[in-house]
Design a protein around this nucleic acid. Sequence first.
DNA 1: ATAATAAAAGATATTTTTGTCTTTTATTAT
DNA 2: ATAATAAAAGACAAAAATATCTTTTATTAT
Lengths: 145, 145
Amino acid sequence: MAIFSKTCEYAIRAVFYLAQKSASGVKSGIKDIAAGIDSPELYLGKILQDLSRKGLVASSKGPNGGFFLSSEMLSLPLIEIVRAVDGDSLFTGCGLGLKQCSEINPCPLHNEFKDIRQKIALMLNRTTIGSFNRELIEGLLSLKK
Amino acid sequence: MAIFSKTCEYAIRAVFYLAQKSASGVKSGIKDIAAGIDSPELYLGKILQDLSRKGLVASSKGPNGGFFLSSEMLSLPLIEIVRAVDGDSLFTGCGLGLKQCSEINPCPLHNEFKDIRQKIALMLNRTTIGSFNRELIEGLLSLKK
DNA sequence: ATAATAAAAGATATTTTTGTCTTTTATTAT
DNA sequence: ATAATAAAAGACAAAAATATCTTTTATTAT
Ligand code: FES
Ligand code: FES
């Protein structure tokens, strides 16, 4: 398995891509983004539509339109994207699939999972969507291949 | 998302269940196990068959037959089960879905993921399948609900 | 030997996730 | 106004994961 769903992976890569472009005031069409992050174009469209409805990315229609991020969006923690796409089961659900994770009825790995989940949440909370703009522009980090 | 697939969750819960029973030399039928970990009976059968082929659980057919763990199996690290069921993508794959995780072409979260994956692997390596027998028998830990 | 038991194996079904196609709506430039 | 552009929306399709059903094989007890 992976930590995030494929959908969420695309979503994260897409917002990182958009962040970098939006920093220089450029809007991006689905086509550009899909090429930039190596994802299925139409599927990505759906994902961004969803994020748009939820106010996590901005968009404008018509010529010169496209997706972009406001400066507020740029400084949102990445966990907002993960929550919007995958929900919060990663942070609250039992790692062994018990109906609910609790201290009262803990699974064998409860304490270990609590620790790991918390580290993931911490990481996603302190990483903002715009965090990597410089490294992305400089080509030190990659969103595809 | 979850860290493990549903299949893997069942597998882990099943081996914990079997460990506990096997410690007192008791074999368990699929029916018992499924009831003990609250999983679909026939699906669990498939999972255990697979683990059996891979030598991670033992089984015997016929009356008084069932699944059980040898003492060697009891002291295997839990990561063996995870690897057998989910493969090692969790430990080696890119968290953002890049085709391959590498230092040369790292995704923005590469270092964070490396750390988290390593913690998960460490946890699964130092936890043996039989680790929780006492607490399970005493009812301090739960495998269902 | 026979019947009963329980896993193994193979086929099939359902659900969820991922991906695509088509039509509509809004915006911009001419 | 008209044509071009690009996202929004809705329907549909394919693939993967999860779950079930049926038949076969091995083992044990009678
Ligand atoms: S009960 Fe399983 S992680 Fe908390
Ligand atoms: S490249 Fe993404 S986790 Fe290593």
